[in-house]
Amino acid sequence: KELVLALYDYQEKSPREVTMKKGDILTLLNSTNKDWWKVEVNGRQGAVPAAYVKKL
């Protein structure tokens, strides 16, 4: 499985998103959308802005 690093804090704004903190390591589930990537963090799945994460 592919991992990404959170470059910034992000507070979810809808139920389809997830909150992450700078430095979090997230499991990347889907990166086909260039703006929003689906990730899993702390057992929750949701979208985060692609510009806020970097593939490891």
Rank of each mutant, 00 (worst) to 15 (best):
K1T: 12
K1Q: 13
K1S: 12
K1C: 15
E2P: 11
E2M: 13
L3P: 04
L3M: 12
L3R: 10
V4S: 03
V4A: 13
V4P: 00
V4E: 02
L5T: 07
L5F: 10
L5M: 14
L5Y: 11
A6M: 03
A6E: 01
A6V: 10
L7A: 03
Y8K: 13
Y8Q: 13
Y8H: 11
D9V: 03
D9Q: 03
D9N: 08
D9K: 02
D9Y: 04
Y10R: 03
Q11S: 11
Q11V: 14
E12N: 08
E12K: 14
E12Y: 05
E12M: 13
K13T: 13
K13W: 05
K13I: 07
S14V: 05
S14C: 10
S14E: 08
S14Y: 07
S14D: 11
R16Y: 14
R16W: 15
R16I: 12
R16L: 15
R16Q: 14
E17N: 06
E17H: 08
V18G: 02
V18C: 09
T19Y: 04
T19K: 04
T19D: 03
M20V: 10
M20W: 02
M20P: 00
M20C: 07
K21P: 00
K21I: 08
K21V: 10
K22N: 04
K22Y: 04
K22Q: 10
G23F: 04
G23H: 05
G23I: 00
G23N: 06
G23W: 06
G23E: 02
D24L: 04
D24H: 05
I25G: 00
I25H: 04
I25W: 05
I25Y: 06
L26G: 09
L26I: 08
L26H: 00
L26S: 01
L26Q: 00
T27N: 09
T27Y: 12
L28M: 03
L28R: 00
L28Q: 00
L28H: 01
L28P: 00
L29F: 05
N30Y: 07
N30F: 07
N30I: 08
N30G: 08
N30M: 08
N30Q: 11
N30H: 09
S31R: 10
T32W: 09
T32R: 09
T32Y: 10
T32F: 10
T32L: 11
T32G: 10
T32S: 14
N33S: 10
N33W: 06
N33C: 11
K34C: 11
K34G: 10
K34S: 12
D35C: 13
D35H: 14
D35E: 12
D35I: 14
W36H: 03
W36L: 04
W36D: 02
W36N: 02
W37T: 03
W37D: 01
W37H: 02
W37I: 07
K38I: 15
K38P: 02
K38G: 08
K38H: 15
K38N: 13
V39F: 01
V39R: 00
V39D: 01
E40Q: 08
V41Q: 10
N42W: 08
N42V: 05
N42C: 12
N42T: 04
G43S: 06
G43E: 06
G43I: 03
G43P: 00
G43K: 04
G43M: 04
R44F: 06
R44Q: 08
R44P: 01
Q45D: 06
Q45L: 08
G46F: 13
A47G: 08
V48E: 00
P49A: 02
P49Q: 02
P49H: 03
P49I: 03
A50Q: 05
A50M: 05
A50Y: 03
A50G: 04
A51T: 12
A51L: 12
V53W: 00
V53M: 06
V53I: 08
K54D: 08
K54C: 15
K54V: 15
K54A: 13
K55C: 11
K55Q: 09
L56G: 03
L56I: 14
L56H: 06
L56C: 15
L56T: 07
